[in-house]
Design a protein around this nucleic acid. Sequence first.
DNA 1: TTGATATGGGATAACAACAGTCCTATATTA
DNA 2: TAATATAGGACTGTTGTTATCCCATATCAA
Lengths: 166, 166
Amino acid sequence: MFTLTRKTDYALVALAGLAESGARNPDPISARELSQRYHLPLPILMKVLKELHRAGIIRSQRGVNGGYALADSPADITLGDVLAAIEGPVRLTACCEEEDAHAQAGCDLEARCPITRSVQRFNGRINGIIARVTLADLLGSEVDVPLHAIGLPPRRRSRAALNARA
Amino acid sequence: MFTLTRKTDYALVALAGLAESGARNPDPISARELSQRYHLPLPILMKVLKELHRAGIIRSQRGVNGGYALADSPADITLGDVLAAIEGPVRLTACCEEEDAHAQAGCDLEARCPITRSVQRFNGRINGIIARVTLADLLGSEVDVPLHAIGLPPRRRSRAALNARA
DNA sequence: TTGATATGGGATAACAACAGTCCTATATTA
DNA sequence: TAATATAGGACTGTTGTTATCCCATATCAA
C-alpha cells in the first residue's frame, strides 16, 4: 500500500513543530511539549526523536529545559532523510540495493527477470523525488512547486473506472 | 521502506511474461508455465493471478490448454492498476482516504496537524505517477521516458553523506 | 550535593500484515 | 470419463510494526 509507518507520521509532525517553533525561538523543545501540542503518544514520540537524533536530523539538549531542535534549516531536511532515519532506505524490491552493497542478494530469478532494470530505474526516480521534497515544502503547503512541472502524459483512467463502465 | 510486497513482484513479472508472449501468440499461458519460466513459486503465483483476474487486468481460460492473457494492451495497464489489485489503494497516511470515502477516519490530531494538506497533495502526486507508468514502460526499459522531463532542482546530498563528511 | 528534569540506549511483548500452504469446487478439452 | 487448469477461500508460520518499560547519563537549580 506504500503507507508510511506511524512512526514516520509522528516524525514528520514533530519535525514540523520543531521547524515552526525554531523559526521564532532558538530554545529546544522537549518531547513532552511536542507530545502535548500535537497529541502524539509520548513514549513512541521519544523513541522517534531518538532515532531522528541518531540520524543527525535534529540536535538534542539534555537536562532541565532541554529538548530538541532542528540540526539544519527546514529547506535542507528532506523527506528522504526522514524516511531513511525511521524506516531505512527506500527500496521497491530486493534487487534495488544500495550502490555500494553487493547487490542482488536473495532473488534467484535475477538472470531471466524481465523487469529488473526498469524497476531499479523507477526506484531511482522515487529516491530522487523524496530527496527533493523538503521539510520546508511540507510546511508551506508548497509541495506543488518542486513537482509541478512534471511533464507527463495525461493520467489514465483507473481500471476500476473502466470496469464500472462495463 | 516503501517496498513492494513479494506478491506485487510476482504480479509484475507474470504480467511482463504475458505481455511478451501475447505479442507473438494469442494462446493463454498457464500458471504452471509462468512459474517454470520465471522460477516463481507456483502456489503464490496462482493466488496472484486470481487476484489480477478479479481486478480485470488479465482474462482467464479454464480447462485443458487454459491459462491467462492480458485483458488489455501493455500500454493500457498501469503500475497503479497492479498495485491497487494486489496491495489495495496507495495511501501515504490515514488522512489520504479515497475522494468518495468519509475521509479522516482514525487520526485524532487532524485539526491541529501541520502537514495534512501537504501529505495529501504529495499522495496525489504519487498516485498520478503510478497511474502513468505502464506495463509497456516496464517492459521496454523506457521508464525514463515518461518521467525524464521532471524539471526538479538538483538532488540534495543525503544526510548520511553529510554526516560521513563530519 | 541533591533532586528534578530530559535525553540515550536497549529489552521486551502484543499485535497486524505478509508469505506461503492446502483443500474443494467448477470449467474445459481429449 | 479422466486429465488439466482456474475460482475461491480457509488456514498457519513468519516478519515487521507498535507500544511499553527499564536503567544510564547529562544538565540545571535549589
